[in-house]
Every structure is written in structure tokens, then in C-alpha cells.
Amino acid sequence: MRTKLAQVGRRLLQAVPSVIGIIVISFALTRALPGDPAVYFAGAMADEKSIAEVRVALGLDRSWIEQFFIYVGNLFSGNLGVSLNTGRPVLTELMTRLPASLELTFTGLGIAILIAVPLGVLAAVRPGSWIDHMCRVLVTAGVSLPTFFTGLFLIYLFYYLLGLAPSPLGRLDILFFPPEHVTGFYTLDSLIAGDGETFVAALKQIVLPALTLGLFALAPIARMTRAAMLNALASDFVRTARANGLSSATVLGTYAFRNAALPVLTTLGMVFSFLLGANVLVEKVFSWPGIGSFAIEALIASDYAAVQGFVLSMALLFVLVNLAIDTLLTLIDPRIGLDG
């Protein structure tokens, strides 16, 4: 167990330089954004004097280095600054929006797994057959679609033409109120509150954006499943199991798939953070109130604090997810001994 803890600790330490790099790069990048936020926020008819007043009020009259150290100091006290765009603390903004993004990403990932894993297994069972080629074409098509195009197309088809989907207006239809906050995931929260109506409403809203996102994630998961299954099927223990006359379903399900699950799980970590990034465009298309749409607005308005906060939280999330997956792998992989 100590080895495992040490491994986890080492993994954490490895992330530290990255985090420092992220802070520096995000600070530099945001300062390089063109446009003068002071001018932007001074309003429509502000003159030079009032712009200067705004500049002082926002602390933009100080040197970059000064601003950087103030920023880092604030970070350590948990203060991410105030978003110029929405006028609220960045931390509050991120905390209220993060669950929306996560719920969407997890649902998208879930859909992708449900489709991609069986496809990958099918392809691996009959490599080179037409099923294999079909799978390959299908998942590659998924990853070849620009997400915003897929999203708009789905809205047009399911909302505008067929009327099956609700209006693409964020997480809940207009007159529903969000369920009591427990996890921040509306679907889960409404279930906890025992509110079936809200659950169905929340579910309806999330299907299209999650599908858009999920399509994009099919390819890496299906590919990895196929490769891992092929490896597993070619391994000695599967051959032995087959030779022993076990049914092919048992062989597939118990022996091969279990062994193929590990590399697939590793891929999921990558795919998850990849989806978090791809979120940005999907959220914009579906008016999803997540951190991605927040970031686009902030970037366009040169809203330093908000962009920094977003990038920082995304990077931390990335590190966390990978850490969690590594830990999980360490714990379930029998080859890594418990007492080393």
C-alpha cells in the first residue's frame, strides 16, 4: 500500500511544474490579448478622463510584474478576482457553471462508451470483415464532424423540423426551476429530490448536446477497445480458455474483455479532458451555461480574471482526472502488487 501511496504522491509532484507553467502562460496570454478592457468597460460615451478612472479602478495602471504578483498572491488566498464581464467573482462563476459542463461531459462520455465499446468489441471479434470496416468508417466519421456543425444540424432536425427535442436553451426549459443543489447535476439532483418531471425535463435538454459531444469521442474509445480486444483475444490465456471448450460468450465477456478494460480506461482519461475542451463550441451552440461558453465571452471581452480562472480550473481538472485514473489503475491492476 505504501508503494501505491508513494506513486500517487509522485504523480502529484509531477503535476506541480505544470501548474506553475499554466499560471505563467495563462497570465502572459491574457495580458497579450488586444483591446483595452478599461476602454471597453468605461462604456459607450466615455471620454479619456473616465477611461483613465476605470483603468485605475481595475488596477490596470500597474506594471505587469506587479499585476502578476498580486495575482499569484490572490490565488493562494483562493481569490480568483472578479469577472469584468459579469461583475461577479470568478470563483463563484466557475463553481456555478462547472457542474453544468461536467454533467454534459459525463453524459457525452457515457453515450460514447455505450456506443463505442460494443462497436470496438464487434470489430475485434471479426477483424477485416465488413463489420470491422463499417465500425471504422462510422467512428471516423464521428470524429471528422465539426462539433458546431453537428450541433446545429441536430437542432435543425430534432427541434425545428421534427419537434422532438425541446428548445435548445440550456439546462432546463424556461419555466422549470433547478432542483435543490446537491451535486449540481440537474438530472441527479432531481432524482434525489424525487422530482420526476424535472428529471425528464433536464434529461431532454441534455440529450442533443451530449450526443453531439459523444459522437466526437467514439473514435478513440472504439479504436482502443478494438486494439485491446485484439491483443487480449490473441493472448495465451484466451487460447487456453477456448481450447478448454469454454463458450465463446464466456471467453469474450470474462476473459478477453476484462483484460482489455485496462487500456480502455486509460484512454477514457484522455478522452475526458479532450471532451472538456471540445465542450466550448457545443456549449455555445446549445446556450449551455457551462464554463466553456463563459470562457468564449471572457476571451472576446479581454476579461483577464475570467480567462485565467477558466484556464486554471480546466488545467487543474485535467491533472485531477488523470490522477484519479492513475490511482484507479494502480488499485485495480493485479500486476501492481499491493505491497510491492
Partner: peptide, 20 residues
């Protein structure tokens, strides 16, 4: 009065046309 933000102009138009 409920004011909803919808960034895409095409979606705003669709919402109005659909009566939402």
C-alpha cells in the same frame, strides 16, 4: 417577464417561430 439569453441568432428565430 422572463428574459433568456440565447447567443445564436438562428436559435432565437427558431424559438420565436416555434412559439417558445
Amino acid at each position: 417577464v422572463i428574459v433568456r439569453e440565447v447567443p445564436s441568432a438562428a436559435t432565437r428565430r427558431a424559438l420565436l417561430e416555434k412559439g417558445d
